[in-house]
């Protein structure tokens, strides 16, 4: 339980433009994390292939 998330809490009020931007950036960050994993593992696989298994 992060202290920050506790502070910000899920309010029942409508989100502000700033909150929406933070949410969207968060979502994009998560997608980038997955792509990063993909890229790193692709390098591992190609290296194995180059090394001839």
């Amino acid at each position: 339980m992060g202290a920050g998330s506790q502070r910000r809490g899920a309010r029942d009020a409508l989100p502000t433009a700033e909150q929406v931007l933070t949410l969207t950036t968060g979502l994009v960050t998560e997608a980038a994390f997955a792509v990063g994993l993909m890229a790193a593992c692709s390098i591992v696989i190609v290296l194995v292939l180059l090394a001839g298994g």
């Binding site: 339980m1 992060g2 920050g4 998330s5 910000r8 933070t22 949410l23 950036t25 968060g26 979502l27 960050t29 998560e30 994390f33």
Partner: peptide
Amino acid sequence: FAVHWAVWTGERSEL
């Protein structure tokens, strides 16, 4: 989900 929530509320370094 707690990591999602941290990232979605601006603490991207949590990831």
